[in-house]
Computed example of a mutant assay.
Amino acid sequence: MDGDHRRRPERCPGGGLDAVTPAHGAGVMATGVLSVGLSSAGAGRLSAALLVVAVGWWLVLAVVFAARLVRRPERWSSEAESPPALTAVAATAVLGTRFALLGRYPVAWALLALAAVAWLGLLPVVLVRRGRRDAVPGSAFLVTVATEALAVPGGVLAAALRVEWPLVPSGCLLLLGLVLYALVLTRFDFGQLRDGAGDQWIFCGAVAISALAAARLDAAVRRVSGPGRPGTAVTVLDEAALALLLVSFACCLAALCCEVRWPRPRYDVRRWSTVFPLGMTASAALATGQTSGLRWAASAGRALVWVALAAWVVVAVGALRRSGRKAVTQ
């Protein structure tokens, strides 16, 4: 998070698998959350196709970074200290959420446990090693994204299985994520909205995933407590989900206006971090609309999920073209 982070390109040392960096994990995040959103919007086949892509991508990254830990531990340690390393947590948790929605509960629990272990190992390192920087880029908001990503499958599993025990830790993660967001926001370099290569959008995605976590916990509390016992928790979560969703819409609109004012059409791997907030905001709107009965939120979510899919296709084409050019020159 050095002071020249605005225009510095993402470094991809070497070629082939050696060029893979933790920033590529945002692609799994974006693909996974699009699968969740499309499922909620009723596009089951597209959702399933993207889930297959996300799982395959996740497996490739897992193998690459496991091999790097063995063969190049110095580079692995350096990358583990950077905020993009937390995409591993968020991507794994997002896949856990999708499998939970499919009713594949053992797989969902396993992915949630794996994400929690990675979160416990990576978050303190990122906070300590990078906590002394003055101005931070959008990727710094991944501390919130990774934290809230653990709360979402906790809420989904609690609602599906009608068990109460995941609600307390998931609620604590929701609150912790919001605290971390506030801390990062005070040091965020807003110049990134003008100069960022794509990861500036994570400041939108961090709010959106907080809204999704609140909506999923809201639904879980309603299901566990029963229709006759709404309670204060439901009211608080309901209002929090709506408020966070509205803030997420406002953040996305601000980021989009900056993209129009200062166009940056060239592909960068950090553009996957632009797709992720769009898909996450769509999923949050769909979940909030379903839980709270707000038709406008559900309608907005259904519309936005197709916008997010279009953005995914554009970035995917850019990634393939970049890979093709590299293959020709090597």
Rank of each mutant, 00 (worst) to 15 (best):
A282G: 10
A308F: 05
D238Q: 13
S273V: 01
W262Y: 15
S283T: 13
L304I: 10
Y267W: 13
R270P: 01
W296H: 14
S283E: 12
G293T: 07
L286T: 05
A298F: 01
A255I: 07
A308D: 09
V269S: 09
L304R: 07
W272M: 03
A303M: 14
D268L: 07
V260F: 15
C251H: 09
L242N: 04
V307Q: 04
C258H: 15
T281A: 13
Q290M: 04
V269F: 09
A241S: 13
A240Q: 09
A303T: 15
A298D: 10
V247C: 11
A250E: 12
A243Y: 00
P263A: 06
W262L: 02
C251E: 08
P263N: 09
G279L: 08
C257M: 13
A308I: 05
Y267L: 06
W272G: 00
L246Q: 09
L256T: 15
R302I: 01
W272V: 04
R271N: 10
A282W: 03
M280E: 12
A255V: 14
V307T: 15
G279Q: 08
C251M: 13
A285D: 06
S248V: 02
D238N: 13
R271S: 06
A243L: 05
G279T: 05
S292T: 12
T235E: 15
Y267P: 01
L294V: 12
E239S: 14
F276I: 03
A254E: 08
A241I: 03
L237R: 02
V260L: 15
C251L: 15
A310N: 11
S283N: 11
A254M: 11
S273K: 02
C252K: 01
W306G: 01
F276K: 02
A284P: 11
L309Y: 12
G279I: 04
A255S: 12
W306I: 05
P277L: 05
T274I: 00
L237E: 01
G289T: 03
Y267K: 06
V236E: 07
D268M: 01
W306C: 11
R302M: 06
G301P: 02
P265L: 09
S283W: 04
L244P: 03
T274L: 13
F276S: 05
G293W: 03
A254Y: 08
C257A: 14
E259Y: 07
S292F: 00
S283L: 08
L237N: 08
R264N: 11
A300C: 14
A284L: 11
Q290F: 03
G289I: 03
A240W: 02
S283H: 07
L253S: 08
L256P: 00
W296P: 00
